[in-house]
Every structure is written in C-alpha cells, then in structure tokens.
Amino acid sequence: MKRIYLVGFMGCGKSAIGKRLHTLTGIPFFDMDHEISEQMQMTIPEIFDQYGELYFRQLETEFLEKFPEEYCIVATGGGVAVKEENIQLMRESGIVFFLNASFRDIWRRISTDVNRPIVQQSSRQELEALYKKRKPKYLHSAHFTVETTGKSLTDIAEYIIFQIERYQ
C-alpha cells in the first residue's frame, strides 16, 4: 500500500475527510499545511507574507519529495496539484483522490477563514475563477474523483476505502 493523497480546492474537506479515514482505518494521517507550518515554525499566512506564494509552493514540492512516511493519508494543500512535478510525485508514490465539491459549498466554508491567505486577498469572483482554473489540474492528478456534495464524511471515507481496496 502506498500513500493516499487527497487533493482539491481549499475548503473541499481534505482535512476533515483525512481525519475520518484515519478514524475508520487507523492509517496515519498528515495535513500537508500543518506539517509545513510545523517545519517552518510559522503559520501559513506568515509564510505567504514573509516569503511569498512561490516559496510556499516549493515547500509543498519538498514535502512530497522528502516526507518519510510511506503508508499514510495526506491532505494536500489546495494548490499542490497546480505543479506538474507535484502531480507526478503523488501519482508515483500513491493513490490520488480528487474531492470534488461545488464552489457554492466551498465558498460557504472558506469565506470567513482568516487562515487562508488567498481567501483574504481575493474576491468571491476571483476565487471562483481560481477554482475553475485549478479544477482540470485536480482531475488530471487524480486516480479517482470523489463527489462530495450532499454526502457525509463517513460516506465519502467509506467510498475512498472501497476504492483503495479495489485498487490494491
């Protein structure tokens, strides 16, 4: 068994679903943003403010290249699938699940989140345009697309577990 990667736009439920998968399977769970934040001893907004988005994207690539855990669940950052290098790293080292949520659902979850630098710097229209721009990348990166709208965390996690078992 390889890593299980959860990709998708910010607010699509990667961390929540990753935690539920961990609860149901016992497979170790890691949140990429949390791990990078711990490594840098800074919040994600502080990293963006001090070093910029390109630096943060490089930290994501380094995480994928160097993270020591092999058998685990990883909730990726919302922009990790933008780089082709990251897509290759994920597809070669694991199974990639795109958590597809509607922008309406995502906006409801992220619109007031002060820990998301891109949300704080963008209008709803700009974020929706970014969502539409990134969606083809998420689809390209994924072995499986998981429709999340109207489904519980447990339903989504059980579907992912079913696909993992079939994939092995």
Rank of each mutant, 00 (worst) to 15 (best):
R134L: 04
T148I: 06
T149S: 08
E147P: 00
K133T: 09
T145A: 14
P117M: 00
L130V: 13
S111P: 00
E158N: 15
S111Q: 13
N115E: 10
S122A: 05
Y131D: 12
Y159I: 04
V114D: 08
H143P: 11
I110F: 01
T145R: 13
P136E: 08
E126G: 10
K135Q: 10
L127F: 05
D155K: 14
E158S: 13
I164Q: 08
Y131I: 08
S141V: 07
Q121S: 12
G150T: 12
S111N: 05
R109M: 01
V114Y: 06
L153W: 01
L127V: 04
D155L: 06
L127Q: 01
P136T: 06
T148F: 05
H143K: 05
T149Q: 05
H140G: 01
D155T: 13
D113G: 08
R134Q: 12
F162Q: 15
K151R: 15
K133V: 04
G150A: 12
D155V: 12
H143D: 15
Q163S: 03
I164T: 06
A142M: 10
L127M: 08
I110H: 01
A129G: 04
S111M: 02
S152Y: 11
I164F: 03
A142Q: 12
D113V: 04
E165I: 02
D113E: 14
Q120K: 07
E128W: 06
G150I: 11
H140K: 15
A129Q: 14
E165L: 03
Y159W: 09
L127S: 02
A142Y: 05
E165T: 02
T148H: 09
Q125K: 11
G150S: 11
T112E: 13
Q163I: 00
T154W: 02
I160N: 02
A157E: 08
R124A: 10
L130Y: 13
A129E: 13
L130E: 10
F144H: 12
H143I: 12
E158A: 02
R116N: 01
Q163R: 15
P117E: 00
P117H: 00
S141T: 06
K135S: 06
A129P: 02
I156G: 10
N115K: 14
I110Y: 03
S152Q: 11
T148E: 09
I160R: 11
T154M: 06
L139S: 09
E126R: 11
Y131G: 15
K133S: 10
R109E: 06
L153I: 02
A157T: 09
F144M: 07
T149P: 04
E147Y: 15
Y159G: 03
S141L: 09
T149N: 14
H140Q: 13
Q163F: 09
D155I: 10
T145N: 11
Q120F: 01
N115A: 04
S123P: 15
